[in-house]
């Protein structure tokens, strides 16, 4: 596992315009500068946001990597949910899914609770 290397590449893409330009022009060369497993490399190239989440990439890095690939917010959240279905629980990092009811249902419940009080 080389979660650190995956996260470092995404960190550099997020903060450095030149790395983004290079990634667009010569992606393989940029990827070769990081010690990645085949699975990590595949997840980055596709990009498979769900798998990157399951591999343990921090959402504060991953959401910008998704935005870089023009993946809209709801599609980003859904990709992570699908990642959990397809690849199983998060393998590393700080995350554990908690069976959250979803933003819309949660919002509606909070509103109902406020009306009761």
């Amino acid at each position: 596992m080389s979660l650190y290397q995956v996260q470092k590449l995404i960190y550099q893409l997020n903060r450095d315009p030149r790395t983004r330009e290079r990634y667009a022009a010569e992606r393989d060369a940029v990827l070769a500068e990081h010690e990645l497993t085949d699975e990590e490399r595949r997840a980055l190239v596709e990009p498979d946001i769900g798998l990157l989440y399951v591999l343990g990439v921090n959402g504060q890095l991953l959401m910008h990597f998704a935005a870089l690939h023009k993946i809209e917010w709801n599609a980003y959240l859904e990709a992570m949910r699908q990642g959990l279905v397809r690849h199983g629980p998060v393998r590393e990092g700080v995350y554990a899914a908690t069976g959250y009811e979803g933003v819309e249902a949660h919002d509606a419940r909070l509103k109902r609770e406020r009306e009761i009080h």
């Binding site: 991953l62 995350y95 899914a97 979803g102 949660h106």
Partner: peptide
């Protein structure tokens, strides 16, 4: 908060 995760929005 559970930002930028599938649990985003949970409070």
């Amino acid at each position: 908060h559970w930002p930028a995760t599938p649990d985003s929005g949970k409070i």
